[in-house]
């Protein structure tokens, strides 16, 4: 693990911090839903990078399943925003 890979992780971490800032500030619930969408997609990238850095490719399986579960959760969240439970 050399300096380049640490910089990769730092950039992803900065993006995640920006997303959490929007999740704290967001005026409406829809803003927070958008932030959750962005966080899940960014975490898929983070898992892939971690698997690439530490050479544990089982993290790719984790990212695949995580993207599926986040898709189902986001569609349910959008239905909730549309007309309540």
């Amino acid at each position: 693990m050399n300096g380049t890979l640490i910089i990769f992780l730092a950039i992803i971490g900065a993006g995640l911090i920006l997303c959490f800032l929007r999740m704290l500030k967001g005026p409406t619930a829809s803003d927070r839903a958008v932030a959750v969408d962005t966080v899940t997609t960014t975490i898929v990238a983070l898992l892939v990078l971690l698997g690439f850095i530490f050479e544990r490719y089982v993290y790719l399986d984790v990212s695949l399943v995580y993207s599926m579960i986040s898709f189902v959760g986001l569609v349910a969240l959008a239905r909730f925003l549309e007309r309540g439970i």
């Binding site: 409406t28 898709f71 569609v75």
Partner: peptide
């Protein structure tokens, strides 16, 4: 698909 669903939900809300 998820982004479209969120946009539609926000507009309808």
């Amino acid at each position: 698909v998820a982004a479209h669903a969120i946009a539609r939900g926000a507009h309808r809300a």
